[in-house]
Design a protein around this nucleic acid. Sequence first.
DNA 1: AGGTTTATGCCACTCAGTGGCATAAGCTCC
DNA 2: GGAGCTTATGCCACTGAGTGGCATAAACCT
Lengths: 212, 212
Amino acid sequence: MSIVTPPARLPLRERKKLRTREALIDTALEHFTDRGFDGTTLDDLCAAVEVSKRTFFRYFDSKEDVAMAPTQDLWAAFLDDLQTRRPTGGPLLTLLQDTLLAALDRMPAEGWAERVLLTRRLAARTPSMNAHGLQFCDRTTRGAITILRERFGLTDPHDLRPRLALDMMVAAFHCALEEWAFQPGPVSRDDLTARLRDAFAAIPGSVTMTVA
Amino acid sequence: MSIVTPPARLPLRERKKLRTREALIDTALEHFTDRGFDGTTLDDLCAAVEVSKRTFFRYFDSKEDVAMAPTQDLWAAFLDDLQTRRPTGGPLLTLLQDTLLAALDRMPAEGWAERVLLTRRLAARTPSMNAHGLQFCDRTTRGAITILRERFGLTDPHDLRPRLALDMMVAAFHCALEEWAFQPGPVSRDDLTARLRDAFAAIPGSVTMTVA
DNA sequence: AGGTTTATGCCACTCAGTGGCATAAGCTCC
DNA sequence: GGAGCTTATGCCACTGAGTGGCATAAACCT
């Protein structure tokens, strides 16, 4: 769980901040995984990183937040891509899929996947972390809707389809993540990409699926 | 915001418990709405209902929980119906829609809708309540999957479609709820039913929708 | 009425999260 | 290579959610 070397030429102060941030994230994931989320107090964590609790809260909004950072990076990239990527016409769901895959592709090849894995496994056994993650998804979804409205002229607020499509994307993402995080063997970012493709591909079938 | 009269012939003790429960829920919704969720302390609330804080936590798991009770009743009914209703063959999504509508139909015609309305509007401006609600949906969804597996022989754990279909149902529900809760004019349970139908109807279109 | 069960109240405690203010570390410009 | 500014950090005291333990009281059951 090594501290990421800050990317070269930043002012010293910024480099230090990055280092503390990374240290907090990694130590948190480590302690939460070993002793459980509730079994780790912020005082423990802060002591381990040699930082005051006051400082912790200048970096993160909550105890849950620190463990969610890697996943939040992905969604931030997603919103960013949605805002800036050249729009390809066609099915909205395909656009969303491509944008998410592009965002995923921008995540650091080194270390990111491992952290997200820990995050997910933690969330699965820590209700408050799960709740926090879901809330974050919800916020992101709303942000995405705003962008879609602006960039694609989907201005009718009573057209439910954009929102539904986004929620499907999120559903596919969660499916993929869960399959990926609880499968035995090594995990990689590419593996997640593949599962994400599968999940998206399963969407049409899930609408028409019949039973009994 | 009147206290619901306990349904006739229960032992006195049980009737009292029901009353305190209702009083806590209604007073909480009232105070949270007036003074905000964060602007109301549990001590305030408990003082208003004349109950000790210790007792509060014997009825509800958290401050958020008390304001979510009416919505949770709906989902409890949904799971119950999913477990017990005679299964009609056909599209899974239709089955889910019918089950949810049936559950909705079982909610008290009197007072329930008003409470859910307050709950939703509160959740919209209180992140921790929103998070709590989403987490509850997630738990319910997982419960529903288990039931689907048992009752409809959907045993393949790698078939993502049931989970996706359930998430679509939840998405439709959230859409409907939001439209319903933020629309001007009076609100009724039947109105919610109608909007729920609309939201479900929009699902196929949201999968195929194209842009730009 | 008398004994059992079960809900409630009270008290002391832990821990997440916040506000305010003093200090120290990094930055900037002469 | 300091003087002076800016910004991050530390410290302290505080609020409020949530919990455990134990004593009391209310409802239940002959």
